[in-house]
Computed example of a mutant assay.
Amino acid sequence: MRATAVVRAELRHGRTVLTELRGQVPLLPREVSVPGGVAEVVFVGGAAGPIGGDDLALRVEVGAGARLRVRTAAAAVILIGDGTPARQRVHLVIGAGGLLEWLPEPVVVAARAAFHSVVRAEPAPDARLFVQETLVLGRVGEPCGDALLRWDVLVDGRPVLRQQSGYGPAAHPGWRGPAGTAGGTVVATRLTLPAPPDRPTSAPGRAVCDLAGGGLLVTVTARDTMTAHRALAGMSASALAPATPAAPVAPLADQLSRATSSEPAVPSNNTSPVPAGAAVR
């Protein structure tokens, strides 16, 4: 299955409006009503999967000064399909002074399945970007499939982050070691640009990386999604605070804190991790 979706938000008369909202099964975007000055779109699943052989492409554009949050309605389970990888490409573009929160629910890679994901973000120099993704390596009681994840972030055409991580039987044998998941079955990653003022510190199971462009990348490994998200909790409320106070921002920060503190209904894997070292490879 091949499918594309486009979401475009613009600032009109001081208010963020969605000027384009279209998609194909299984990428079906829906606008939802939320309080505050941020528009919100939720992708609902129009079919099972993604499954092997699917090729999904999503583009999100936020115009100058606009503010948009994009979520998914439920976790995605990657299934084996035709034996080839399920592919997903996400392109995020944020104009001057704009803000984008990309907050999909976890992706679960089932046994023998393969998932290739590319996230490319192009924020303007004074734009704000908040991304959180969670990967679950296998369903309960089964081994994981293969996952290959790539992030590319460019600010004003200059690379701020280029990272590729592989997990599963096809990955380098060290992926479960101290420099990989350290035995954990959940990998949660959070990117904040610019970096929040209350920078966390690296710790067993959590790697914190300062980006050259002023952003912050935090990667957590854990044995279940609740533990992983607790390790990330507490950083979101201040992550989007601007350099100078502005009245509309406080409600957005509060909403984001509530949105990211809830736990998604996804199966956890009961494999116990070895004490973790650095999670970024």
Rank of each mutant, 00 (worst) to 15 (best):
R206N: 10
L149K: 08
V160G: 06
P197N: 04
L154S: 09
V153W: 05
Q163R: 12
H172W: 05
G177T: 08
P248Q: 05
A203Q: 15
V186Q: 00
P173F: 03
L232F: 08
R162N: 09
V187L: 04
L252F: 10
P197M: 01
D198M: 10
V160M: 08
G145H: 12
G180H: 02
T244P: 04
A171F: 03
P159G: 00
V155W: 06
V218R: 00
G157I: 08
W151D: 13
A179D: 04
L240A: 11
A179E: 07
L149R: 13
A195Y: 14
A188V: 12
A250C: 06
Q163T: 07
A247Q: 06
D156P: 10
G183A: 02
A250G: 10
C209I: 09
L161K: 13
P143A: 01
L193M: 15
M226V: 13
A243P: 02
L148E: 09
L148T: 12
Y167P: 06
A247R: 13
A246C: 07
H172N: 03
D146A: 05
P143G: 02
T225D: 09
A237H: 11
H172V: 09
Q164D: 03
T181P: 05
S238P: 02
A233I: 06
G205E: 01
D198H: 13
A207L: 11
M235L: 07
G177Y: 07
D156Y: 07
T185R: 05
A212T: 15
L149F: 14
G214Y: 01
A222C: 00
A222G: 02
A188Y: 12
G157P: 06
G168D: 01
S236G: 06
T185F: 04
Q164F: 00
D224R: 00
A241T: 10
S202P: 15
H229W: 10
G234H: 03
A212L: 15
A203H: 15
G174C: 09
P159D: 01
L154V: 08
A237K: 05
S238L: 12
Q164E: 13
P200L: 01
G177F: 04
L216Y: 04
G174S: 08
R199N: 09
P196D: 02
M226T: 15
Y167T: 10
A170L: 13
L252P: 08
A147L: 08
R162Y: 12
H172G: 10
A237P: 05
D146Q: 01
L211Y: 12
M226F: 06
T185L: 02
L193R: 14
R150M: 02
P242E: 03
V155R: 00
D198P: 14
L211G: 02
L161M: 10
S165D: 11
S236Y: 03
D146W: 12
L217N: 11
G174L: 12
G177W: 11
T221P: 08
L148W: 06
L232Q: 00
L211C: 02
A147W: 14
R230C: 11
A222E: 01
H229T: 10
R230D: 13
C209L: 15
A250I: 09
G214P: 09
S165M: 13
A212Y: 11
L154A: 14
P248W: 11
